[in-house]
């Protein structure tokens, strides 16, 4: 049994390395000089062509639609499709697939929103954070499917999400504390006026930097992760096709890691957003 598995793995490695080298050779032959970083970035950055299979002509997307935009739409369709189809009212004995979908919501509820915001307040915010977690998770994982791309590997997408969080931080803060009290909350008590104003400005700035960091963290993780998988595969082309015996297992390992990182980054983004919004709308010392 184990020997059979080993044989299968060996076969997969050989076939993958041959395919990868064939794809890269084809790409290299089309351009005059092989541009490794160009090839790499082409697979990660946004574009308007969809390459479904090697050796099959690529599909050019309609004007105005790029791969990352397509991924955004696809994620919305996937999430709404699965949730609308599998969640039925009054379902007391759910099937495994329904439990799986529900468990994601329960995870966001019990591990992110309720512990931070409390039950009463958390119940109002739960749909928002669940949507955020699902949206980011699906976007992160879609990029792991061959031929598709990671929209969260584009800084515009992550920044857009971070801006939403930033705006909500201010809105929740103004609503929870009042306009004046929100800024007063940033002023540390018992400090001289000069230092206090300076700290207040720093705190205000930190609200922006926190959101920016949120955006950069997600972008960098997703971009770097996918680039790492591709870099391992590109080595086959750069060094020798036989390097596939090392590259393919490594990229498979990185791929597995990326699944974890994709979910983890969605979790981190949601968790930190929740904390920022809660912190901005809670009086200091509570």
């Amino acid at each position: 049994m184990n020997l059979k598995r080993l044989y299968l793995l060996f076969l997969i490695v050989i076939l993958s390395s041959l395919t990868v080298s064939a794809v890269f050779s084809e790409e290299a032959s089309t351009s005059e000089s092989p541009d490794v970083s160009g090839t790499l970035f082409e697979h990660v950055l946004d574009g308007n062509t969809l390459e479904l299979f090697p050796f099959v002509p690529e599909i050019t997307l309609p004007h105005g639609i790029t791969m990352h935009r397509l991924m955004l739409v696809l994620s919305v369709l996937l999430i709404t499709g699965f949730y609308s189809a599998w969640i039925k009212r009054g379902d007391l004995k759910p099937k495994t697939r329904t439990i799986l979908l529900e468990s994601l919501v329960i995870f966001v509820r019990d591990d992110i929103v309720y512990p931070i915001m409390g039950e009463e307040r958390g119940a109002k915010w739960l749909p928002f954070f669940t949507t955020m977690f699902l949206f980011l998770s699906v976007l992160n994982l879609l990029g792991l499917i061959p031929a598709l791309k990671t929209a969260t590997g584009n800084i515009n997408v992550t920044t857009a999400m971070a801006i939403v969080v930033l705006l909500l931080t201010f809105i929740a803060g103004f609503k929870g504390l009042g306009f004046v009290h929100f800024f007063k909350n940033l002023f540390p008590e018992g400090t001289p006026l000069g230092i206090g104003i300076f700290v207040m400005l720093l705190e205000l700035l930190s609200l922006f930097t926190k959101s920016m960091v949120l955006s950069l963290r997600l972008f960098a993780n997703m971009f770097a992760g996918h680039l790492a998988i591709l870099s391992f595969l590109v080595l086959i082309f750069v060094i020798t096709p036989f390097f596939g015996f090392i590259s393919v297992p490594f990229s498979v390992f990185t791929y597995t890691l990326e699944v974890l990182v994709g979910l983890l980054q969605a979790f981190v983004f949601t968790l930190l957003s929740c904390i920022f919004i809660m912190m901005a709308s809670t009086p200091e010392g509570e």
Binding site: T66, L72, S75, P127, T130, T131, F135, N156, A160, M161
Partner: peptide
């Protein structure tokens, strides 16, 4: 793309 992200997120949030 930023606007697309907001719209997608908004639609998804509304539906959910």
């Amino acid at each position: 793309l930023v606007i697309w992200t907001w719209i997608s997120f908004g639609i998804l949030f509304f539906i959910l």
